[in-house]
């Protein structure tokens, strides 16, 4: 394969590769490592100018302070309240739309499909004013439900693209033979296609979780107060309060980044399968 497997290379080259790997990783993750170390550095170190040296002690205190003195715990709860219903809603709806677009050859099929695909790529700003207005009028401004409804609708676009292509890859004969036996369309969906969609459902769930958790734009547009604010917008607000208190900013950042990172590590295979859809075959 390409490049030539390192096993075929000479001894020194192999050794050089093994040494280069960790060095490259440390350089690549430098900002992250720096922030992680700072989050464990006592405030006194920063005051004394010890920014890079060995921390004088490991300060888990920073994390305790972040949770005690700021509403970050609350923000994280809000993020879950937005993210989990969105995952369920968007994946659920797209199972249905994906099935409709993959299995039936109705007239507007391709047009509907491309509308979903194109909708995915548009800039959020073209939606901002009307969606904010709609949310206000529905009495959902400044609530997690308002965010959920928008995210479900928007993510359905991407999810439909994914589901439709996934179902297209299934053996169609399965559906045909069920039809011949008089199985209803709903039963075909429920008992034949849906069980086979499990890997796609898993992949989309992790992806949508990450996308929605990390959303910042809509969190600032559709939410104003603390009580519904997700952690991305919350972190930005806290950053304004903790001016230059980098040990706190760092600890807060790590806390906010953790849930999607854990999700990624637990569901890695599904995550990458979802993200690289279409990267191998046209």
């Amino acid at each position: 394969m390409f490049p030539t497997p390192i096993q075929k290379a000479s001894g020194p080259t192999r050794l050089a590769y093994q040494i280069a790997l960790p060095i490259a990783l440390v350089i690549w993750l430098f900002p992250l490592i720096g922030v992680a170390v700072t989050s464990l550095r006592p405030a006194s170190d920063l005051a004394a100018g010890n920014y890079f040296g060995v921390p004088s002690s490991i300060a888990f205190e920073n994390y305790a302070a972040v949770f005690r003195d700021s509403p970050i715990g609350w923000y994280i709860l809000n993020s879950f309240k937005v993210t989990i219903p969105t995952v369920i809603g968007a994946v659920g709806l797209s199972c249905l739309t994906g099935f409709a677009l993959a299995v039936y050859g109705f007239r507007a099929n391709l047009w509907v499909f491309f509308a979903f695909v194109a909708g995915n790529f548009i800039p959020f700003q073209i939606l901002m004013v009307p969606v904010r207005d709609l949310t206000l009028k529905a009495g959902l401004y400044d609530s997690t439900l308002g965010l959920v409804l928008f995210h479900v609708a928007f993510q359905t676009g991407f999810c439909t693209l994914f589901m439709r292509n996934f179902i297209k890859g299934m053996p169609f004969a399965l559906i045909e033979s069920a039809r011949v036996e008089g199985v209803s369309e709903w039963q075909i969906f429920r008992h034949i296609v849906l069980p086979l969609m499990r890997p796609a459902i898993a992949a989309l769930s992790v992806l949508v979780f990450t996308f929605v958790w990390n959303d910042y734009f809509w969190a600032t547009v559709l939410v104003q107060g603390q009580h519904a604010m997700p952690v991305t917008a919350g972190l930005y607000a806290l950053n304004g309060q903790w001016v230059a208190a980098w040990h706190l900013v760092s600890a807060g950042s790590i806390v906010a980044a953790l849930p999607p990172v854990l999700m990624f590590f637990l569901m890695q295979r599904h995550f990458i399968a979802g993200l690289t859809l279409g990267a191998t075959k046209g």
């Binding site: 922030v35 980098w246 906010a256 990172v261």
Partner: peptide, 14 residues
Amino acid sequence: VISQVVVGLMFTWF
């Protein structure tokens, strides 16, 4: 995988 908010803060610090 990390939120762009966090990436932004990391680079601001950087």
